[in-house]
Nucleic acid binder design. Structure first.
Lengths: 149, 149
DNA sequence: TGCTAATTGTCTGCTACCGTACAATAATCG
DNA sequence: CGATTATTGTACGGTAGCAGACAATTAGCA
């Protein structure tokens, strides 16, 4: 989604969007030189830190659809970073784990989220951060409520 | 990009992302029943309110790449909502304008951005909104600065 | 046990975004 | 004027996301 139109350009919502795009750009730029995208990074992060899991669990943890996960996983498999093995107990499920190549890549990878957070908020007043967090949290809750009805 | 991993889950950045996704979902849901996407809506909005412009100007205004605009425009042309006419003066440029069908559709369209803003922030304390806006604006500036270097 | 859910992952089709490279066209400078 | 450079839109490949439909498989209930 592109930039806001004029009337909303100064709203918190518009700035949340601006901020999100900027942080996303930084994260993507950080990862691009390593040849992976943000979601691929999140998947590796999860697998490295939580151990092998099913695609279903991974999709739940990262809050993306099974169909999306399916695509991301096949990309990672194609790159040889992740192995996708059918579960012996339940033939429907595929268990994912990081390959040796995946671990090697991971070892040389920065944490793009930590970098972005540091660049964004280091040294900013804690009370202000708390207010911003509260406002965004409440707004998100109201939007989700609105989406249900 | 999916959800944050644990350590950052309570940060302003994480909530900005959550908020962005929720607002995007509401905007997309609002527009889906009319058969267009958010970016298509922004393009129509711009063309209706600013009159015919070149693709270049439109891409600048909406802060998206020429390549992206090219795709969005060809979708709108395919739907018969926008006309793409080569400029007589400069054969490189294509001038975009809303067709009659486009205006008819536009007349029946809600403003999804205004709806989302209202659902998000109506009745929220103005001082808090100002703080949140300031924090996000500053963070965005810091990120963009970081991206330049 | 056997038929009917429900679950899991995939496939197709769509939107949307970027980066790189390219052809066509215009502008500029020697 | 002619060669170089800049601009404009497009093509292609990659990433990421959703919705809906589907086959395979499992679970649950009559």
């Amino acid at each position: 989604m592109p930039d806001e139109s004029q009337p909303q350009h100064d709203s918190v919502g518009a700035w949340a969007k601006q901020y999100y795009f900027a942080s996303r750009a930084l994260i993507e730029a950080t990862l691009r030189e390593h040849g992976i995208g943000p979601t691929q990074w999140y998947v590796l992060h999860q697998l490295v830190n939580e151990g092998p899991t099913t695609q279903r669990e991974l999709a739940l943890a990262l809050k993306i659809e099974r169909a999306t996960m399916s695509g991301v996983v096949s990309t990672l498999v194609r790159k040889g970073l992740v192995a996708q093995i059918p579960d012996a107990a339940d033939q429907r499920q595929r268990i994912l784990s990081v390959t040796a190549a995946g671990r090697t890549l991971w070892a040389g990878l920065p944490d793009p989220v930590a970098l972005a957070t540091a660049a964004s908020f280091e040294g900013v007043d804690e009370a202000d951060l708390a207010v911003a967090r509260r406002v965004l949290q409440a707004a998100t809750a109201r939007l989700l409520e609105h989406l249900d009805s």
